[in-house]
Structures are given as structure tokens and as C-alpha cells.
């Protein structure tokens, strides 16, 4: 199985019974998908659970796979559906107020510039700031950063128009900068 094959070719090969194709595909997307789910849920445990569910869903539905979009879109659509279910099952409301009306994170939760933190602490800080974002802003931001999707891809994946995605990302960036504070130059 060639590493040069596209995701779609690999998935088709896996659909047709090539287990090696799945290995390549998995290596390409494992870390990004894991981080996306972990940051979306704000819990590594929940992220792991959803992560496995997404991949198992992909494995089970492999025979129905057809190339109608990018494979990554297909994969993250599964993840998005699992996230919606997960939020619903945990009583969390993702449909929050419009991004523009979202409250700013409390000041005490933001970065204290006088503290010297190592990288681990910085990573914790980033996770904390992400968790303070409204889920839809967080999802849009993570799809941009982890999924490296285009605007249209994100809009299609989430099911909203492109302008809404742009707005969500814009607000997410602003809030993160405010939260991370001194970590940024």
C-alpha cells in the first residue's frame, strides 16, 4: 500500500478488503482526530471514547463508502455526529447564543503573565482556554486547526453557511488570544 495514495483511494482499498490501506489512513488521521475530539469534549477520557466510536463507525460502514467528498470530511462528519450525540447525552447544550453574544471568559480563568509555566502547563492552559469557548466556536476553530479544512468544507461538515463559520472562528480566535494572554507574543 503506497503512502502516496489519497485518502479516498485508501478508503476504497480498505472497503475492498485491504487492511493495509486502513493502517495508512489511520496513521494519517489518528492524532488530529483524537485532539479534535479530546478538545471538543474537554475530557481526554470522553475524547478517547468518542475517538474509538468514530473509528469503529468508519470500520463498520466501510462497505457503504463512496467517494462523494474528501475522506477527511467524511471522517469528521462521523465525529461531528458523535459529538452531537455525546453533548446531548450529557445534557450539554451546544446551541448557545450567537457567537457575538457569547460571554467572555472570567478574568481569573485567563492567563496570568507573571507565572512561568513549562510546556505541560502551557498545554493545560491551552486546553483550559479551549474549554471556555462555546462548543460551536470551538468546533469551528478545531476543524480549522486540526482538520485543516477549508471554509466550505467546515460549512458543509457542520451544516451551516460559510459566513457563520467565519464568524465563529473569528470569535474563537479573539477569545483564545484573550485567554492565553502572555503565551502569545
Amino acid at each position: 500500500m503506497s503512502e502516496n495514495q489519497t485518502d479516498e483511494e485508501l478508503m476504497l482499498a480498505y472497503r475492498d478488503g485491504d487492511a493495509g490501506a486502513f493502517d495508512v489512513l489511520y496513521r494519517r488521521h489518528r492524532a488530529r482526530l483524537y485532539r479534535f475530539l479530546s478538545h471538543e469534549t474537554g475530557s481526554p477520557a470522553a475524547g478517547e471514547e468518542l475517538y474509538q466510536e468514530v473509528w469503529m463507525t468508519l470500520i463498520r460502514s466501510r462497505e457503504r463508502y463512496v467517494v462523494s467528498a474528501k475522506f477527511s470530511t467524511y471522517l469528521y462528519q462521523i465525529a461531528h455526529s458523535r459529538l452531537v450525540d455525546w453533548f446531548r447525552s450529557h445534557g450539554k447544550v451546544r446551541l448557545e447564543a450567537l457567537d457575538e453574544d457569547a460571554p467572555e471568559p472570567p478574568a481569573e480563568a485567563c492567563w496570568q503573565p507573571d507565572r512561568q509555566l513549562d510546556q505541560r502547563q502551557e498545554a493545560d492552559r491551552l486546553r483550559h482556554c479551549l474549554s471556555q469557548l462555546p462548543p460551536q466556536q470551538r468546533e469551528a476553530f478545531l476543524l480549522k486547526e486540526e482538520g485543516e479544512f477549508s471554509l466550505d468544507d467546515i460549512a458543509q461538515l457542520v451544516g451551516v453557511n460559510a459566513e457563520t463559520i467565519k464568524s465563529r472562528i473569528r470569535y474563537a480566535i479573539s477569545k483564545l488570544r484573550n485567554c492565553l494572554g502572555g503565551l502569545l507574543a
Binding site: 489518528r30 478517547e48 498545554a123 491551552l126 486547526e145 486540526e146 467546515i154 463559520i165 488570544r177
Partner: peptide
């Protein structure tokens, strides 16, 4: 995507810190 709002510094920090793997 140039159409997307982008903050290079934030993206770099995110890539530096977000290194979790399954």
C-alpha cells in the same frame, strides 16, 4: 484557507502545545 479568519501566532502556539495522541 485564505477565506478563513487566521491568527498565525495562535495557530503556531496551538500546534506547539496540542500534541496529544491516542
Amino acid at each position: 484557507d485564505p477565506q478563513l479568519p487566521h491568527d498565525a501566532e495562535l495557530s503556531a502556539l496551538y500546534r506547539k502545545l496540542a500534541v496529544e495522541e491516542p
